[in-house]
Nucleic acid binder design. Sequence first.
DNA 1: GGCAAGCCGTACCGTACGTTACGGTTCGGC
DNA 2: GCCGAACCGTAACGTACGGTACGGCTTGCC
Lengths: 217, 217
Amino acid sequence: MLHIVPDIDNSETLTERQKTVLDAALRLLVEEGDDLTMTAVARRASCSKETLYKWFGDRDGLLTATVQWQASKVRVAQVDGKGLGLASLTASLERFACDWLKVISSDTSIALNRVAVGHAGSGKDNLGAVVLENGRFALAKRLKPVLEAGRQAGLLEFADAETAFRTFFGLVGRDVQIRLLLGDRLELTEAAIGGDAIRATQQFLALFGAKTGPQGL
Amino acid sequence: MLHIVPDIDNSETLTERQKTVLDAALRLLVEEGDDLTMTAVARRASCSKETLYKWFGDRDGLLTATVQWQASKVRVAQVDGKGLGLASLTASLERFACDWLKVISSDTSIALNRVAVGHAGSGKDNLGAVVLENGRFALAKRLKPVLEAGRQAGLLEFADAETAFRTFFGLVGRDVQIRLLLGDRLELTEAAIGGDAIRATQQFLALFGAKTGPQGL
DNA sequence: GGCAAGCCGTACCGTACGTTACGGTTCGGC
DNA sequence: GCCGAACCGTAACGTACGGTACGGCTTGCC
């Protein structure tokens, strides 16, 4: 399993200059393919390779720092499950679906996932673990409390929150991520994403919605 | 979109010797990461690099031929939608789900998808298109007639076969493929796959099954 | 001012790998 | 037996790139 990310917390220990360097690396990663070279990063960031090596150790360190830096930027707002009505639950689910679709269809996510997938194929799987931890598992960690609250309020019925989450994940993402990663053009407009979020939420509620209605009152 | 695979049909124009070479490349791709070198392939296949270049042009040609060769091996049996009862429809869906889960969790598929994803990130997207065409789109092409037959028989209700298929795809695959590609260990036993196939099929039928029962009789 | 630290730009080194070239061997056709 | 084609094994070439070294510049501190 190993969803452990043993590395430094970051985003606090980074100087402003280092952040701009990582931003440059990120932009380069998105524009060019995953084959970013140290020389290219140095040139783009207007810094010397010597500095890159001093700060990040080696190419893998730079890659890892870049991925973690991006990950630290996408902390989405926590949703508190305190409103617990069917309307607010639906809205929350749609919101999660929408956010997730926007993330996985963004150029940044695609580039980062590509490099992480390639990295996972070549020995050390650090990047894959980082991306997974800040993507799929972070989503689960934020969504599960909402699901549990929905069950508590009698709006949802499921035995295992993990299983319910994975179904929701599948209903939202479907074939989008793998198609994008494999280079399929797939125009996802704001409207299409919104529609997909609503559809996925409705399907999820059809599968896991309580048939008896709220039993709390 | 471009799901066009403009290259040669293959698998007919290949000699036995060439097939064994591609098998060697495939094995190497699965064992080592995606960083297979021409030298390694030549050594493993006991052939000269000169021969590799004569047959496949360059490294990309070899990669493409390898992917297409594997693709040509996984033509799954077509399911005829002529039994059209709820039981046989369910069985067909479960069969598809089972086969698909086995494919995407196989070492070969993971390795091939990894190299294709990496390739899609670096300019020419040929490999990605090939993998997509022989994976997700081939599955759709085989499954849609079954869905249409199910609708014809009054067992399913949906407006668009493509949309219905994508939902099924999401229910079956969920987060499995991306987790595996990112290096997550994820033991998928035969039993777990079978259970997931049944669950996905039941969920799909719950969403798209006709509420009125078969109207054909 | 003097000085040390940090950093930029660039040149440099070693290596890995894609690609090419070539000598030697096998094999089918005459 | 002879010839040419195909192919194996290996050596060689060119380049790209990770990593290192160094000279010069700025900056903050004494």
